[in-house]
Design a protein around this nucleic acid. Structure first.
Length: 735
DNA sequence: CACCGTTAAGTTTTT
DNA sequence: CTTAACGGTG
């Protein structure tokens, strides 16, 4: 029954169950179907008990989808199946075993913002100005270590270099000590923690190695070194490891994903069988062939040759727009047109490189009354008021979490300002106890701490707060429902009244958000057999995706990153311009970064099933000024026989258009800026154009902004020298 | 200690 | 154009 819907290679991928196997699955090649079939094959045909299987994915979305599809194929309780994300798997391991590492089972998980806050406090404590050393850089350094699988005192040999004499390494050590004291782990620490557990305690390792007979990894191209180490250990004994990935879709290297995990898989598992799924079932020939041309410019590849039996299909429509507004209005009117011809709105999607591009598109969709939804970009749990309440909850669950406590110690205002907090923190450090413990000590025995010179008013504030938290801690231990605990916290701490007292519009919105948080907790309670505050907090840190509303009939808007794994009959890829896509940052990063941008472009193209639109704007409002970047280089990499060029907002080609003609047309815009623009001449040095400077010699324009006398250009000269000039003043000429 | 004005900088973001 | 973060003032 499995072979019926599978092609020969897919069938092989399903039935070669034993020994290491790497499946290189191109976009739209039926990857998920193959994986799901493989799992049900193992369960049904090979009689593998469900608990012997471990399938690891990256996103909760992918895990959910796979679980549902397996469940529909196999008549089994899916809860006994470990189809889960790397991080959730590690949390599960650690919740039962972490005492080996000296933490307790109620450990907190810090997200990136919290990690950054810890780093800031480490730096500040050392008297380092945050301008001298950016916390972001330190965070990046630490994350990198963790992406490699490093942990403090890991004993060699490990296959990476650690600069222990690096200035930042001492920050890392201190950061780790802080987290340890707070009984907390960050995202990377979850993975590294399990590696550490396995390496230091062979009996634990043995237990898990014997538990899982078959290990599967989805989206393998996005694994980092640490995750690879982890699966290597898990599969060491039986070597029944199956990884599925596509090196051409590796788009998270900036986050530690290591393409060498794919390129070097055979070195670690020499007996590996490599299968390539090259037939695409998703897109038209035109789209596949055009995308193939683009991706073939990359050098870091295993090399797959995608092909399809699908019809040739429509040409790609390349849309050359005068500016970003024209681009947005084109997209809106085309969507409307397609809709009128009977296309479902849910079959259409708009992709952009950066989130900031969504706004102008949204404006035009709203103006045309086109329903849309934005995928990703969830910032709900980033809101101040939500984070405050979460901090209260974290404190209840884990009172060692001094970061959470210091966040809310004066919210709402209790008269405990920075000075008092610093005193408390210093005292906590001195006695090497947590902030919470020192506060409890002061409340219980204030005479002993009279030398701290804490006013009676502050002491009574502390007492009041400590009492409330303690009460709720007891209720939590008595397994009171999370939503009850939340409501009690919200009101007893005075947070609700504090917001209520402010009558401004913003506070009203905040109260609404807190109500939404309450319903999120209720939702969690309903979908969990044993709900707890700890469980809720874990769920939202590891899975911040909002509940998918099942509303049909909306156009989807998302970043290209967000589009991975999805497909749509009609796709609009907007903003295909130099400096935007590829992003200006990637152009500094050399060919590696550029190749990743190309993969990203490739991912975007291969989402489209029937028709792909690629649009670019000649002028675009960026950072408050109009920039003129040329079309993306990736556009040039698509051979012209695959697309039709369509121009919007300017009748003739802007490439050769006379400057006067350019603005003599009836301008549909009312804004002053464009009017002013029209009075001056167009920029003379588009990005990409070659110039000669009387001093520096030949160079290439990287960036051009402003027009006429205001035109500024950034030029890269040979030898990598970059200079910025006023175009009208600098001795430069076009060549 | 809270508020306001100035300044600087500005990707992508599965967990 | 935005937003976040800092420094100064009341």
């Amino acid at each position: 029954m499995f072979s019926m819907e599978l092609n020969p290679v897919q069938k092989e991928a399903v039935e070669k169950t034993d020994g290491p196997i790497m499946i290189l699955a191109g976009a739209g090649s039926g990857k998920t179907r193959t994986l799901v079939s493989r799992i049900s094959y193992l369960l049904k045909e090979k009689d593998v008990p469900p608990y012997r299987l471990l399938a690891l994915t990256f996103s909760n979305k992918a895990a959910r989808e796979m679980r549902e599809r397996v469940a529909s194929l196999v008549n089994l309780d899916i809860n006994s199946l470990a189809i889960t994300t790397f991080h959730s798997f590690c949390v599960r391991v650690l919740r039962s075993e972490i005492t080996y590492l000296g933490l307790s089972k109620n450990f907190t998980i810090y997200d990136e913002a919290e990690s950054r806050a810890v780093i800031k406090s480490v730096l500040t404590r050392r008297g380092i100005n945050l301008k001298e050393i950016s916390p972001y850089e330190v965070l990046y350094f630490i994350e990198n270590l963790k992406n490699l699988g490093h942990y403090v005192d890991r004993s060699p040999p490990y296959n990476y270099e650690v600069e222990e004499d690096h200035e930042f390494y001492s920050f890392y050590l201190e950061y780790e000590a802080e987290l340890f004291k707070a009984n907390a782990l960050d995202f990377g620490g979850l993975i590294c923690g399990v590696i550490q557990l396995f390496e230091k305690f062979p009996e634990v390792k043995k237990h898990f190695q014997e538990r899982y007979h078959y290990v599967l990894v989805d989206e393998y191209q996005d694994t980092n070194r640490a995750q690879f180490e982890l699966i290597k250990i898990l599969a060491e004994k039986r070597k029944n490891i199956c990884v599925v990935g596509d090196e051409d879709q590796s788009i998270y290297s900036w986050r530690g994903a290591d393409i060498h995990n794919i390129l070097d898989f055979e070195k670690v598992f020499p007996e590996v069988q490599i299968l390539k799924l090259e037939q695409n079932y998703r897109s038209s020939k035109n789209i596949i062939e055009a995308a193939t041309h683009v991706i073939s410019q990359n050098t870091l590849r295993k090399g797959k040759k995608m092909w399809t039996d699908n019809p040739q299909g429509d040409s790609i429509l390349m849309v050359d727009c005068l500016d970003d507004k024209k681009e947005a209005s084109f997209v809106a009117s085309e969507l409307l047109d397609l809709y009128k011809k009977g296309t479902l709105l849910s079959d259409m999607a708009v992709f952009y490189r950066t989130n900031s591009q969504s706004r102008i598109i949204e404006d035009h969709l709203r103006a045309n009354k086109i329903p849309y939804k934005i995928i990703g970009g969830t910032k709900f749990y980033d809101r101040k008021e939500v984070k405050d309440m979460l901090a209260y909850m974290r404190l209840v669950v884990n009172d060692k979490d001094s970061l959470a406590l210091s966040r809310i110690i004066n919210v709402p205002a209790r008269g405990i300002g920075a000075t008092s907090l610093r005193k408390l923190e210093e005292e906590a450090v001195k006695g090497s106890v947590s902030l919470w413990e020192i506060i409890c000590a002061i409340v219980e025995n204030s005479e002993k701490y009279s030398f701290l010179k804490i006013s009676a008013k502050i002491k009574s504030s502390l007492r009041e707060m400590a009492t409330i938290i303690s009460e709720i801690k007891v209720l939590d231990q008595e397994k009171e429902s999370p939503v009850t605990l939340y409501e009690k916290l919200l009101h007893d701490t005075g947070y609700f009244d504090f917001l209520k007292a402010q009558k401004d519009y913003e506070s009203l919105a905040r109260i609404e958000n807190l109500e939404e948080l309450s319903s999120a907790i209720k939702q969690y309670e309903q979908s969990n057999p044993n709900p707890s505050l700890l469980g809720f907090l874990e769920t939202i840190t590891l899975d911040n995706s909002k509940e998918e509303e099942k509303t049909q009939g909306e156009v989807s808007l998302m970043t290209v990153h967000g589009a991975k794994g999805l497909e749509f009959p009609f796709v609009f890829l907007v903003g295909a311009e130099e400096n935007l896509f590829p992003s200006y940052k990637s152009m500094e990063g050399g060919s590696k970064a550029l190749e990743e941008e190309r993969r990203l472009f490739y991912v975007a193209m291969t989402r489209a099933m029937k028709k792909l639109y690629i649009t670019f704007a000649r002028g675009r409002m960026l950072f408050g000024q109009i920039k003129f970047n040329g079309p993306s280089r990736f556009v040039d990499e698509i051979p012209s026989n695959f697309f039709l060029l369509h121009k919007v907002g300017h009748e003739e080609s802007a490439f050769q258009m006379e400057e006067d003609d350019y603005f003599s047309q009836e301008s549909p815009y009312e804004t002053d800026k464009v009017f002013q623009l029209g009075k001056r001449s167009l920029c003379k040095f588009e990005s990409g154009s070659k110039v000669r400077h009387s001093l520096y010699g030949e160079g290439k324009v990287l960036e051009s902004s402003g027009t006429g006398d205001e035109e500024k250009v950034l030029i890269m000269f040979s030898g990598g020298v970059r200079k910025k000039f006023m175009a009208s003043m600098a001795p430069i000429v076009r060549i």
